[in-house]
Amino acid sequence: MILSKEKLGALVEQVKISGALFAAPAVDGGQVVMKSVNVADEISFDYVITANSAKEYLFPQTETIAVVEIEKNKVKLSAVEPDAPETVLFGVRPCDAAAFASLRSVFTWDFIDESYTKREDKSIVLSVACTKGDEGCFCTSVGLKPDTTDGSDLQLKETTDGGSFVVEALTDKGKEFVKKFSDVFDDGSADTKAIFTPDEIPGGVDIEKIKERLADPAHYADPVWPELARKCFGCGACTFSCPTCHCFDITDEGDVFSTERKKNWDACQIDNFTLHASGHNPRDTQTKRWRNRFMCKFHIYPKKFTTKGCVGCGRCVRVCPVRLDITEVMAEFSK
């Protein structure tokens, strides 16, 4: 099946008419980001990976979960239904698509966070396999591929002439989508561009070895930790751009008469994240906070949630102002 780039305009239009949101890679603030587009002309095709991950469409940076009105001693508390429109996520990279299973595993672990699941259920993922990449990419080191189909409802591969995509419908949702917008999809096949393959990480990475080393609490005392993580600023850019980071804060905003309860992204790299009211902070140095992030990715996620904590998108490598490269830490712990 073929989706020609010329027909993308019609697809966007029809999707919009159906009342759904169409998010795709587009330029904003000088970089290509996943954003809601109104016309196909806004869509960028020239990008390695969007600066933000598609996670914010399923797990927004900020959302109101309840509204409270207080009058004298009468409290009116109303839960706010999550705003979960039908959403088409177009041009998602396969690594980002694979991350949705990870987020889902956290948000459905025993207790179900419906503001996540509702949004995911109402989204359809059209991933585009990578024909280019950069030094930050390392999906192959975490057991994925630049054309991994995990998490994608449809996967698109750019044709050799660059004018179209070869489309593969992977899920029932994907097949439904093709049926619904059948006039933009054409029968046929074509040759596709070569898939990009990330470079090997210097020193080599062995995920099983990393898991094994992290499973032993003794590694906390390993002097390699301060050596590796000392330079971290604690800026949190890695966590905010990460497609699997799920930490959040719940806080009230407003005044004592009218207030909104918010659920906002938060980050384990921020210094007061785990600060107790008593002043005690279990993760009181940046080294401990960074170690926790690495533990989360390569020990907690696989062990506790049985999903991938890291999909190798490389955003944390690209955004880190001090170049604390997670792949170097992975190589160190593969020894």
Binding site: D28, G29, N52, Q61, F233, G234, C235, G236, A237, T239, F240, N264, W265, A267, I270, V319, P321
Partner: peptide, 14 residues
């Protein structure tokens, strides 16, 4: 421009 801010405070930390 500020609308794009994600409140990561990287500016402050740097």
């Amino acid at each position: 421009h500020f609308n794009r801010c994600i409140k990561c405070y990287a500016c402050r930390q740097a």
